[in-house]
Design a protein around this nucleic acid. Structure first.
Lengths: 213, 213
DNA sequence: ATTTCATTAAAACACCCGTTTGAAACGATC
DNA sequence: GATCGTTTCAAACGGGTGTTTTAATGAAAT
């Protein structure tokens, strides 16, 4: 066929970035082709139309990273499993699009403005992680009912993704020179400490020094 | 002048809904005028252009509701203040756009895709509430540093807004017939219980029955 | 009644975007 | 080297969108 950086691959990469930054409607095929160094007609040739490109980008997004879909949680104690899950999730959330990490931002956009490709995203990306988190929390709270379990999962997920959503404004909101708040290490530790404290598996959050020795 | 439901007011109301549903780029002036029962040229006559309409909508959004910008927190104990803040916030988050409550969804969109009107939103809407939440948390944790205080605020806010973001997919994610998870009462109680537990002001979250007697 | 002004109405304009077209360039196979 | 299928290219098309224009409407002031 062709070289590993074929037009098709470069288009997917460029489209991933563009879609993640602007959203489906606001993304421009001309911009994508420009970024990919491809001709305008390349998108329609390789993917049929804009929607076809988007679907491909979305499925490729979680197909390529499927090896790292979950952190390797062996037989660790549940609290440590939860801590590692949170760290893994925060790391994927906090990075910017410019780092080539457009996959999770793209999925967040799909939640906010669903497209016909939503079902694929839910089944292929969201549900596996949501159920992994649910299984960890069920280890911690064996007898909890489904509704409460879902609420607990959302409490964890919400604490993580809020930093993606407020990322662009947190600097202006907290005053200049406070970007350190978005440090992945600090955030994942905080969310884990907060959550474990809420579950009674750690000291109350925000006391004095670091909650972890 | 004109009647209280002048074209200008109806345009603001219709535009608020449209912008909240579709976002700035995807919102259509033609649709807005149609919803408002106004002529196409009305937008440009009254607001100059689309951006002018958007800015007006955004500032009107939090100007009209300024009376209810904060729940009335008297001299309640800090934990109860926090609980009421959360309830107030969740109620604004969870309602749908169709209920005429397009204000908060619109502001969430502004966070996700900032426009030139972002600064107004931060100063006029976000910062007051963020600092109110911060002052409540500072009562609970007097000695906490700014960075940790911000992280705590985000933990609270994140738990609330995640339900707006996942609103459209939670039904499909959790299986059919589970819309009850998005009930405002249940959610605000859960977030409050979870947060107070994390702060050491309540029993661990998700144990047996309701944490509140 | 006439003028004046603010508002509304219908139509058109200019631009942008996704898509299509038809031909050119390329590489492999015989 | 000729042929064929694949890929790239420049240009154009049709539809939709924000915006402008020009005239009509209607109510108050003269």
């Amino acid at each position: 066929m062709s070289s590993p950086d074929a037009t098709k691959d470069r288009l997917i990469e460029a489209a991933g970035r563009e879609f993640a930054e602007k959203g489906y409607d606001s993304a421009r095929i001309r911009t994508i082709c420009e970024r990919a160094g491809a001709n305008l007609a390349a998108v329609n040739y390789h993917f049929g139309d804009k929607q076809g490109l988007y679907r491909t980008v979305l499925t490729e997004a979680y197909r390529r990273r499927s090896t790292t879909v979950t952190p390797d949680l062996g037989d660790l104690p549940p609290a440590e499993k939860l801590r590692r899950f949170i760290r893994f999730f925060v790391e994927q959330v906090v990075v910017g699009e410019d780092d080539g990490e457009w996959r999770l931002p793209l999925i967040l956009r799909e939640l906010f403005d669903p497209t016909p490709a939503l079902d694929d995203v839910i089944d292929g990306w969201i549900r596996p992680r949501f159920e992994l988190l649910g299984s960890i929390l069920r280890e911690i709270r064996p007898g909890v009912d489904e509704r409460r379990l879902a609420a607990l999962c959302f409490s964890v997920v919400g604490q993580c993704i809020v930093h993606r959503i407020t990322m662009k404004v947190s600097g202006r909101l907290l005053g200049p020179g406070n970007p350190g708040c978005l440090d992945a290490d600090y955030l994942s530790d905080h969310v884990a400490d907060f959550t474990l404290a809420a579950l009674g598996l750690g000291p109350p959050a925000g006391m004095g020094g670091p909650a972890r020795e």
